[in-house]
Simulated scan of single mutants.
Amino acid sequence: MGNSSMDAGRLGELERVVRADVQSGRYFGAAIKIARGGETVLDLAVGHADEAGTHEIRTDTVFSVFSITKAFVNVLVLRAIELGRFALTTPMVDIVPEFAGRPRDRATIFHFLTHTTGMPGVWEPVPGLLLEDLEESVAAVVAHVHGAVEPGTRCDYAPMAGHVLLGEVLRRTDPAGRPIGRILREDLWDPLGMTDTNLGILPHMRDRHAVPEMRGVLPITSRSRTSPGDYGLYTAERNEAVWAGSASTTRDLQRFMEMLRRGGSLDDVRILSPRMIELARTVWTGDMPNELYRTVALRNGDAVPPAHLGLGFNVRGEGIFTTQLGTLTSPSTFGNYGAGTGLVWVDPASDVSFVGLSAGLLTQADNIARYQRLSDMVAAAVI
């Protein structure tokens, strides 16, 4: 098996742990896809998409991936920098002039990618706002989310506001003037053959969609004009929620992560340069904690971990602390996650890519504990 060799016993143990989790009701089900050297070594589907156990999870189940959506936007922002449309050092206000006012007007694209804009991490700028149209989200963020500290002095993970503006940057600098959904589709998902990934649930994805059951863990509702319920945003056919609105499969996300693992290209399609990926998986936040997780850690009785943010990616970095990316993975491991549900990472040292998606949201602390355990088990299977 050469480069793709992994310990079958260890991978079997990982499957056993996931089945036991599902059996105990910790979550309803999961799909996990692991590759080494580009060769899939585990393609797992366990349990159900719903608490009632009526929809079985399959390897092609479509999941709402929440903040993994940010990874798609981040990659296209990095690509736009490579194409000379703006720079890491460009102030946001140069592209979105209405984003004026101190101290936020000193925040650059670099600050947005590293969650160091100086703005507080808000989930929604106004309670109950409809967030499906980018234009309305931009107006709400500009009006209601102001700088609290000087950019670069604090790391405050932005669940929503930062990526609203990064999505708007892509839209405003697009030579063809396309809407954000088309930019993502034509510049990223189509070239990578990600046929089941979209901002919204397309007709061909609908019968495979694991409709998210929030279980009270998200502090907001996400309504839509076209789909009913408190979380209609996640079942609507279309949205422009560039921070949380994507749906995808383990297959599509594996293709995305393999592109990153291979230095920015897959099947002769180049999305990023190797140099940009090297920069993106470098820790730029020093010893700063991530304010969102400071609270989670303190509530949980854990030591507060460093934020370890790269350019749009979470990075494993040095040290032993509680992290979804695992304690056995190499310091260069980098990836993204979605609230209570999903995690993707690449470990460049072992050539492993990991994709985990689950149904039945977990709290932040429980989700971190779950994925730390699974990531460690994956790392321990590398031989």
Results as ranks from 00 to 15, higher is better:
Leu78Tyr: 05
Gly340Asn: 06
Val169Pro: 13
Val164Gly: 07
Ser330Glu: 04
Thr69Leu: 01
Gly118Pro: 02
Thr59Ile: 04
Arg58His: 15
Val344Cys: 07
Pro289Ser: 01
Ala280Phe: 06
Val164Asp: 05
His209Pro: 09
Val211Ser: 01
Glu39Arg: 12
Arg238Phe: 08
Ser4Val: 02
Met205Gly: 12
Val142Gln: 01
Leu362Asn: 08
Glu186Thr: 07
Trp189Ile: 04
Arg275His: 10
Val22Trp: 06
Arg281Thr: 13
Gly53Arg: 15
Arg36Phe: 15
Thr282Val: 10
Val17Gly: 05
Met205Asp: 09
Leu44Lys: 01
Gly101Ala: 02
Thr153His: 04
Gly326Thr: 03
Arg373Leu: 13
Gly167Cys: 03
Met377Cys: 11
Leu202Ser: 07
Leu253Cys: 11
Ala236Thr: 05
Asp287Leu: 01
Ile383Thr: 15
Ser330His: 04
Leu76Val: 03
Gly264Leu: 09
Asp133Met: 11
Asp21Cys: 13
Thr249Gln: 07
Gly29Val: 00
Thr235Pro: 10
Gly229Leu: 12
Arg294Trp: 08
Gln254Leu: 11
Asp50His: 07
Leu192Tyr: 07
Gly37Asp: 10
Ser350Trp: 10
Pro203His: 12
Asp207Asn: 15
Pro274Val: 13
Trp189Gly: 00
Pro228Ala: 08
Pro159Trp: 01
Tyr234Met: 10
Leu328Asp: 02
Thr89Glu: 15
Gly47Val: 07
Ala107Phe: 04
Ala49Gln: 13
His209Ile: 14
Thr235Ala: 09
Ala20Asn: 14
Arg225Pro: 10
Phe63Leu: 07
Trp284Tyr: 11
Ser273Phe: 10
Glu135Arg: 12
Leu88Glu: 05
Val269His: 06
Ile368Gln: 05
Arg270Phe: 15
Thr323Asn: 10
Ala244Glu: 02
His308Tyr: 10
Thr249His: 04
Leu188Val: 09
Asp174Ile: 03
Pro127Tyr: 04
Gly310Glu: 05
Glu258Phe: 14
Asn336Lys: 10
Met214Ser: 05
Ile183Asp: 06
Arg373Asp: 15
Thr323Leu: 09
Asn198Ser: 12
Leu260His: 11
Leu78Ser: 12
Val93Arg: 05
Arg294Met: 05
Gly229Ser: 09
Gly286Val: 04
Glu237Trp: 11
Phe321Met: 03
Ala297Cys: 08
Ser330Trp: 07
Met205Arg: 05
Ala31Trp: 02
Ile368Phe: 04
Ser265Pro: 09
Phe28Glu: 08
Arg172His: 06
Leu325Tyr: 10
Glu56Lys: 14
Val352Pro: 13
Thr59Ala: 11
Leu188Gly: 00
Gly167Ser: 00
Val122Trp: 00
Ser330Cys: 09
Ser350Met: 08
